[in-house]
């Protein structure tokens, strides 16, 4: 089976969306884009990506709600959610983790290290899942 290289990016800001899409594309990943939470959940269910990069500050449905909704589907249990946010207030990290995110990256992202961070989180998550299964 061909290795899953699809990563879902849920982000409402077009330039930031493009930035991440470009970086992912340059490193051999396929970015699926969603500019709202609802679209993101739909895409996650239909395309079953390798990982989901989730902005927290979203219109209508915020990132915490999206994370919770995604975690409600057991078919997406293996998919790590990496929260990316410019929020840096007390509890942001905890809230994101509590909502179902598996990692947290603060904006602005560092283009030199971003892909490495994403990859290490995916790795970490799959190892954790395996441990849980066994």
């Amino acid at each position: 089976m061909e290795k899953n290289k699809q990563i879902l990016v849920i982000e409402d800001n077009p330039s930031n969306l493009y930035l991440m899409q470009y970086l992912l594309g340059k490193h051999g990943y396929t970015a699926i884009e969603a500019d709202t939470g609802l679209k993101g959940i739909d895409l996650a269910l239909t395309s079953k990506p390798l990982a989901i990069i989730l902005d927290i500050q979203l219109p209508e449905m915020d990132g915490y709600e999206v994370a919770k909704a995604i975690r409600a589907y057991s078919s997406l249990d293996d998919t790590p959610i990496i929260a990316v946010t410019s929020y840096a207030m007390i509890g942001d990290r905890e809230n994101a983790i509590a909502a179902g995110a598996s990692a947290y990256i603060e904006k602005p992202i560092n283009p030199d290290t971003f892909i490495r961070e994403i990859e290490s989180h995916i790795q970490e998550y799959s190892e954790r899942s395996k441990l849980c299964e066994s």
Partner: peptide, 10 residues
Amino acid sequence: LNSIIGFTGI
């Protein structure tokens, strides 16, 4: 800033 720093880096 995320865009500026990000694209400059790219």
